[in-house]
Design a protein around this nucleic acid. Sequence first.
DNA 1: TTGTACGCGTTATCAA
DNA 2: TTGATAACGCGTACAA
Lengths: 319, 319
Amino acid sequence: MATVSRYINHRETVSDEIVNRIRPVMQELNYVPLVAARNLASRKTGIIGLLSFTVEYGFFGPLVTGLEKTLKENGYNLLVATYPPDHNDEIAPPIGPHNADGVVVFSNTLSEERLAEWYGMQFPIVLVHRTAPHSLPIPCVNVENKTASFKLVEHLIEEHGKKQIIFMRPSGYQEDAHSRELAYKAALKAHSIVFDPNLIIGGNYDQGAGRQAMEEFLANNPPSFDAVFAGDDDLAVSVISALQNAGLRVPEDMAVVGFDDQRFARLFVPALTTVHAPTEEVGRVAGQQMLNVLRGQPFDCMTVLPTEVVIRQSCGCCQ
Amino acid sequence: MATVSRYINHRETVSDEIVNRIRPVMQELNYVPLVAARNLASRKTGIIGLLSFTVEYGFFGPLVTGLEKTLKENGYNLLVATYPPDHNDEIAPPIGPHNADGVVVFSNTLSEERLAEWYGMQFPIVLVHRTAPHSLPIPCVNVENKTASFKLVEHLIEEHGKKQIIFMRPSGYQEDAHSRELAYKAALKAHSIVFDPNLIIGGNYDQGAGRQAMEEFLANNPPSFDAVFAGDDDLAVSVISALQNAGLRVPEDMAVVGFDDQRFARLFVPALTTVHAPTEEVGRVAGQQMLNVLRGQPFDCMTVLPTEVVIRQSCGCCQ
DNA sequence: TTGTACGCGTTATCAA
DNA sequence: TTGATAACGCGTACAA
């Protein structure tokens, strides 16, 4: 029994003679180790989880792709599960210490309390699109939000003479969007434009967000703005739709820019001016950091991947 | 020991006296049952898998949402994993009989051999967007493709006088797309339009598919067509982009229609004329069928959910 | 290099 | 209704 175990797991050398005795029997019996028994005995599962409050985001696909590739190459399987953030921590996440060797957490899917709890029990965690609470040295992987956002808003101001720029928040709090909002304010300030709190909209809406938020805003205000910086590409598209629906032309009457450079960004009409975020790379790096943690090797507490402004047409360029 | 197990699983009645003895101790010890041990002893995991060759499809999100809701309400967790179809069945799927109580399979993610193998070992399977092999009475959930596609093509012919309609296949074989193609041919025939095999394009391309396929087609042919029926909305958007890039106007010069009615379909400019598919409902029904199988209750071998043509602007209507 | 014996933490069985 | 005891199938010190 023990020898068969050793043979299967390639742990110690087994003599050819015995291997030749084991193999045919395994074939004949159609033997496959029972994962549950294995997990119990070894206290390992070979599974890494990805926990997210949604799978409906456009950039979710590339993230999974990058993550999965890195992990599979190293013998782990990736299992994805959603976990609504409003759970009050009552219901345990579908993936966690009980059924995985580690978990990658997207944005604010998990509360700080849960993170602290898991960290305390030495459970490997990697954060993506979120920075770790100060007291927890957990590796996190982000994209550069501020510089790119600053440049993007600056482009609207300098190249297109925009002065009344709306910032549209995605629904719910997200760290990424918050950083972009801060950069937006900084850019205004750097160009001596007074920040108008009325020009921050969105944030309290569900799916289909941008369109609804923009429609409401338009209903209550005459178009007292000349550009929109949407928190992400999903929102940008909704916003453009709402504007056009209201009889405004983009980019002639109104410039709209986004963030992420999702797949559809350049297919859209007008093609989206946005910031390219290396989402698949985020996945790959997160996977690598997870491997480092699992192996007890040193890891980077904070990785910030570079982003780049992509000028297309929705801002008014390249007509 | 046994009594505690009974208490935790609410299997048999435990006297209040003993319950009051168990509870405080559980608190104090911070006792949580070890899932691995549980799985070993009970031969159950409480997990249902969703196996798909991609998570990048636009309609993947709603499918997960519907499925997850139904399963969670019944005590199961949904775990999503991808499995490239070109694996030659060498590598075992990340989710299967070894670590789940059942699996929902999207489209042709699994080979017939694998399905037969799992079915043979009584492992619960539900198919979505795919019909089961004849010999395997596995429940499958589909959307109605043919009637809707027929009507859609008919709309192009009757309302807009289109005669040279391209059908664009998605990359790789998919049953859905095949049904839509058949309906397309049937609609042509019903209106005495000779089918031109040159007007079937796509099928061999990777991501970003439609655009590339259409660009190649345009490069080799003068625009000898007047409409495009894209296999799904993702493709439709790519196609429109390619057409506009080539200086053609949609819908003035060229009508383009899709399938699925994904979230962005009505946000796009021009708004997509397409077929609404109840994707979230597909997920809910699939979840219900899975529960039926798990409980040994009767199930429907084939569910076909109704679809509906949605006329917007990309066909030339509502200008 | 091989085999024995035990532990992993539950659930299931059976007698009380 | 309860409690002792036997699986569950594997990994792993330890001795051989």
